[in-house]
Amino acid sequence: MAGTDRHDAPVELDGSEGEGGGQILRSALSLSLITGRPFHMRNVRANRQPPGLRPQHLACVRGAEAISGGRSEGAAVGASELRFEPGPVRPGDYVLEVGTAGSTPLLFQCLFYPLALAGGGSLTLRGGTHLPHSPSYHYVVGVWLPVVKAYGLNAALRLVHAGFYPQGAGEFIAEVEPVRDPPDRVDLPSRGTLRDIAVGSFVGGLPFGIAERQSKAAVAALRERGIYSHAENRPLPVTHSVGTVTFIMAQFENTIAGFTSLGKRGLPAEDVGREAAEEVARFMESGGALDEHLGDQILLPAALLAAGKLGASSPGTTRYTTARVTDHLTTHAWLIERFLPVRVTVEPGGAVEVAPA
């Protein structure tokens, strides 16, 4: 099912479009593997400093090559132009290194859909698991994965070692399952009643008291806003990486949302906990069914459903509301429409629809 829409001419992409970051490259790689369509990208990560390919983005290119036998031109650190031609994605077991503080969750999300569509397999990913500007491992497991399950997609994830900035040195294993029967439609117009708020406070290689301070501050900050929660403090297995994280998961009647705050040198543990709680409060003040990150990340499975890539489905539409319309969301919509016969409509107020073109 992956790699079947052959076209002679590559998809031409401008990497400075919209948010102009690494997301354009990662999603282009994923969509290229799924459709079999090569692409040519200029101005890679033009809106980032430094621009061009960085080691973590190069790892995504190498990962796409590994699972498909694909070929690239220009794949080097600092490059501003890249050509990628996919091969057929092969089910199997793959071990991939992102390097130091590169994001393993982002590499996983890049390769998950093509591998699932090809019949599944195993990904052992080594690098960072809890990093700034990236979904954390706990977000992927607690929020992203339950939502993609609604599309007939699934994986079993196991954290071997946590990896924090700047050392990385984390690892997790993902057993990716083949696609199952897709839904006819996915509708998430509202989040519904709040059912549970769980505060998870984690430390790796640092005193356990830090986790207790983080969670205590998070619970107190939520209570001040009339939001009641329960907390769990846990150590994370690490090698030579150290760090802390507060992850708050909000379970609603219809949806799930997640909020991550990472510790860093010089930042009091209490501030880490309060930061995650403040993100929850901001989300509660919005009208979105999905948090802004999930509102972006759900676009790809929604587009696969609309394009018939997950199997026969009618009408194959997805409708939802997001807490905030971000540049990531609108850029992702633009990119998806370049590869798949779908129409993505994003309203200024946060209503999103993904439908067959």
Rank of each mutant, 00 (worst) to 15 (best):
351 A>R: 14
243 G>L: 05
292 E>W: 02
313 S>Y: 06
76 A>I: 01
312 A>T: 08
275 E>F: 01
221 A>V: 02
90 R>P: 01
307 A>W: 02
187 D>E: 15
274 R>W: 07
250 A>M: 08
54 R>E: 14
113 Y>V: 02
283 F>I: 08
207 P>Y: 00
25 L>A: 03
44 V>W: 12
110 C>E: 15
129 T>K: 05
339 F>T: 06
101 A>Q: 13
158 R>Q: 13
118 A>K: 03
306 A>G: 03
252 F>G: 02
270 E>D: 13
115 L>F: 07
195 R>I: 00
58 L>I: 05
198 A>V: 07
111 L>E: 11
207 P>Q: 04
181 D>G: 05
307 A>V: 02
62 R>Q: 14
264 K>F: 03
290 L>A: 07
292 E>G: 00
274 R>Q: 14
318 T>R: 04
260 T>L: 03
324 R>A: 14
151 Y>C: 06
315 P>A: 10
279 E>H: 14
141 V>N: 10
123 L>Q: 08
186 V>Q: 01
49 Q>E: 15
191 R>G: 03
95 V>P: 00
42 R>Q: 15
296 D>L: 06
139 Y>F: 15
51 P>H: 02
339 F>C: 05
265 R>C: 04
59 A>F: 11
218 A>V: 06
228 Y>L: 11
252 F>P: 02
111 L>P: 05
213 R>P: 00
72 S>D: 10
59 A>R: 03
229 S>P: 13
222 L>F: 12
123 L>C: 05
129 T>V: 13
52 G>N: 07
260 T>W: 02
69 G>W: 11
269 A>D: 14
29 L>F: 09
106 L>C: 07
316 G>E: 10
50 P>I: 00
120 G>C: 04
150 A>P: 00
166 P>F: 00
222 L>H: 08
196 D>I: 00
119 G>Q: 09
278 E>C: 00
269 A>F: 01
173 I>G: 01
101 A>F: 14
18 G>L: 08
185 R>F: 14
212 E>H: 11
305 L>M: 05
77 V>E: 15
240 H>R: 09
36 G>C: 09
3 G>A: 10
188 L>S: 04
141 V>Q: 15
5 D>M: 15
311 G>I: 10
289 A>E: 11
